[in-house]
């Protein structure tokens, strides 16, 4: 399991290769990359600053992966999340999951992202054509995370 918070960009190919290693049990690798869009809520985004709560962030991400391990049959997982100033088209977050079969890899990857969006202490501040503003949380993100609670009975 790997969790990293960093200002530097990441190379998804290298991260995937490292997570897979030469483990012959791996039959499926699912990955997700989140990137910065140039328009949000009808305003043009010039730059975005991502901040987090050092200490809690790493702990929250580790717990989310542990949660995914308990729910899905996966072999390993990685989360890399960037902080600092980003621009449209920049990469923000990478999630990679390895498992024997694709179903668990897809599900665990989506689960980790859905929980990250609602539980990991990151905040986005945009500089837009309308001025600087903190990005509002979306109800649809809560809905996405809540969906997993009705699908599996282990939620606490």
């Amino acid at each position: 399991m790997t969790v990293r918070v960093q200002t530097a960009d990441f190379d998804a190919g290298r991260e995937i290769a490292e997570l897979r290693g030469s483990d012959p049990r791996v039959g499926a690798v699912a990955s997700f990359i989140g990137t910065v869009r140039d328009v949000n809520d009808a305003a043009t985004v010039a730059t975005m600053t991502l901040e987090h709560y050092p200490g809690m962030t790493e702990k929250a991400l580790t717990e989310i992966i542990a949660d995914a391990r308990a729910r899905f049959d996966i072999l390993d997982a990685l989360v890399v999340h960037r902080v600092g100033e980003l621009r449209p088209a920049d990469q923000i977050v990478l999630v990679v999951v390895t498992s024997a079969h694709r179903g668990d890899a897809f599900d665990a990857c989506r689960f980790i992202m859905d929980y990250l969006k609602t539980r990991a202490p990151f905040w986005k501040k945009e500089v837009t054509s309308e001025g600087a503003r903190w990005v509002d949380a979306r109800v649809s993100d809560d809905d996405a995370a809540a969906r997993w609670q009705t699908q599996t009975g282990n939620e606490t």
Binding site: G34, L50, H52, Y53, M56, H81, I92, V93, M113, L116, K117, T118, R119, A120, P121, F122, W123, K124, W134, V135, D136, A137
Partner: peptide
């Protein structure tokens, strides 16, 4: 004790 606005990462 940390006070957190709704999170918006990812």
């Amino acid at each position: 004790v940390a006070l957190l606005p709704p999170v918006t990462g990812g």
